[in-house]
Amino acid sequence: MSPILEGQNLALRFVAVRALDDVSLALWPGEVVAIVGESGSGKSTLLRVLAGLAAPQAGRVLYHDADGAAQDVHALREAERRTLMRRDWGFVHQNARDGLRMGVSAGGNIGERLMAAGGRHYGNIRTAAAEWMARVEMDPARMDEAPRNFSGGMQQRLQIARCLVTRPRLVFMDEPTGGLDVSVQARLLDLIRSLVAELGLAVLFVTHDIAAARLLAHRIVVMRHGRIVEEGLADRVLDDPQHPYTQLLVASVLAA
């Protein structure tokens, strides 16, 4: 077996800041990995580079597709990369506005990826959209409503349904629970947890919420100043942190 995604010696500088400083990371099929760290640690940049949304200045990102072929994500032609992104991958944004079309109905939002994949049967698209609304605990009767009618937590769930409807193998999430009320966060995390387990997805997500990382992740990667300072089994990183920064991170959460 090979990793589903590999970042190799990634580097990216923004003027004077090293956003990524020789970062390597592998994600395996079915594995859920959390990237934690404070704002400015480079965690979101790493996610964007691995997801093909930002190009690294050095290093490369390899995706191993379902046939086992390795694809250099940033060397792909744009058409190929876009196809990959909406067939094999999903991306859940922190802000639903970045991940949804706010002027398009819930059903249309979910159906878009099916249509992009060549779906041309209106009835089948609606059936799939209704099914996915139910799976993310939304009322399918509301599928013709626009996202702005929904609460923040529902918008995030809609975003997840939109991503998963084409059964991707790999999902990226950028602070998926950020900006939500605590009770709403718990429900969303739990939904993500069960869907991920059920579908056997590989997930790479960025969070500053240690509790979310503990609940969802098999493995945790701790970033600071553009470098990975510690990584390992989620419970070991949190219960037996080695790096001073990880200890600080864990202690800060427990104190809160």
């Binding site: 744009e78 058409a79 876009r82 079309r101 398009v104 109905s105 059903g107 249309g108 159906g111 878009e112 990826r113 249509m115 992009a116 041309r120 209106y122 698209i125 609606r126 013709d144």
Partner: peptide, 21 residues
């Protein structure tokens, strides 16, 4: 860019919305 890529799912979405509404 969408024309260049022949990516017209958006237009299909619009059609979907028209029929739904």
């Amino acid at each position: 860019r969408l024309h260049a890529l022949g990516d017209y799912s958006l237009a299909q979405v619009k059609l979907y919305e028209d029929i739904a509404r």
